[in-house]
């Protein structure tokens, strides 16, 4: 499997995705605009609360090509953050202690050659660091084998996708062999102390549905994941985050190709929850792209919807402008407001 960009799929273009989502090309399908739902909930325009998460996508390069990837990441993607942009991020972090959490994502962030330097510099600023590790990167090459020790040294919270506790469903979404490698990687993390109940080294797993349906209850599924991974592999982890798939990029392509697009959008819209809308992650997060542009969230980043204020790039960063901006919303946002809601930390209500 290759990225949408590599196959010259029209959905590799953000404008094409927005055209489908906002101006449905499907006959007899005229979904309620997300903005109307927010208005009904007295949440429009959506405004930031206290912004404390600085999420940095340090590149689209990845060793996996997952069917649902909203980044359209893969081995053929060469866009990665350079050291100059990383230094700009460090300068902003240094000047703004309100960003207590730095969330590093990708692609596989570890594939950026400056990843370790960047983490070490952020650690000097005494922030809580999250790395969104796809697990298989720990097994991809000898040069990554010591990453668990590196994470441990810098007290990094590791957040890793594992779509299900069995091989079949995981490999269908993330590629052949991913489940076995993921199990081996969790074993490596457990071995250095990650994921144990009393440990301060947190390993949190992420469940997202392998298909056109909503995630299960986080509490129940966490219990089942823990039981299954312990019984079958003697593995431990701390929390399970349930995330809803947003209808963009490769997942949008899959929805359309499989004939599930309208049904899935209906499902998201019918499950709109005002309480979840009030707690969406874009209200306390700033998202930075590999080339330094600023967004409301990683999804708006992939749709190339830069912040609705003059601070559009890290070089123009002005916290007052950012704090006072309106958050850009669209039909894809229904993914974060369905049911118990969805964020990079799982359910929001």
């Amino acid at each position: 499997m290759k990225s949408l960009q590599a196959t010259q799929n029209r959905l590799a273009q953000a404008q094409e995705q927005i055209a489908i989502l906002e101006h449905s090309a499907f006959e007899h399908f005229d979904p309620i605009p997300f903005q109307y739902k927010l208005e009904e909930s007295s949440l429009y325009p959506l405004r930031p609360k206290e912004i404390n998460i600085f999420q940095i996508n340090i590149g689209k390069m990845c060793n996996q090509v997952c069917k649902h990837c909203h980044v359209d990441a893969g081995p053929d993607r060469k866009e990665i953050m350079d050291q100059t942009t990383m230094q700009q991020c460090l300068d902003i972090l240094s000047a703004h202690p309100q960003f207590s959490i730095v969330d590093l994502t990708g692609g596989a962030p570890e594939m950026n050659p400056n990843f370790r330097w960047f983490v070490e510099e952020i650690a000097k600023l005494n922030r809580h660091i999250i790395v969104r590790c796809n697990l298989t990167i720990l097994r991809a090459n000898k040069k990554y084998y010591d990453l668990p020790e590196f994470y441990k040294k810098h007290r990094i919270e590791v957040v890793s996708s594992l779509p299900f506790y069995n091989k079949d469903r995981t490999d269908r979404q993330r590629g052949d062999g991913v489940f076995d490698d993921s199990i081996a990687a969790i074993k490596m993390l457990n071995a250095v102390g990650y994921g144990h109940e009393e440990s301060s080294l947190k390993l949190n797993l992420v469940y997202n549905p392998a298909g056109a349906f909503l995630p299960a209850s986080q509490t129940e599924l966490e219990r089942e994941f823990k039981q299954a991974l312990w019984n079958d592999y003697q593995l431990v982890f701390n929390q399970l985050f349930c995330i809803t798939n947003l209808p963009i990029s490769r997942y949008l392509d899959w929805l359309i190709q499989s004939g599930n697009y309208e049904r899935y959008m209906d499902k998201l819209i019918n499950a709109y929850n005002p309480a979840a809308a009030a707690n969406v992650m874009c209200r306390n997060t700033i998202s930075v792209s590999w080339d330094g542009y600023l967004y409301d969230c990683d999804f708006n980043q992939m749709l190339e919807l830069t912040l609705a204020c003059p601070s559009k790039h890290i070089s123009q960063f002005n916290i007052q402008q950012i704090q006072n901006r309106d958050i850009i919303v669209g039909q894809h946002c229904y993914g974060c407001t369905a049911g118990a809601g969805s964020s990079c930390g799982g359910e929001v209500v």
Partner: peptide, 12 residues
């Protein structure tokens, strides 16, 4: 079928 997926059941 959709509900079973959404309640976390496996295919088996």
């Amino acid at each position: 079928t959709a509900d079973a997926y959404e309640k976390g059941y496996s295919e088996a």
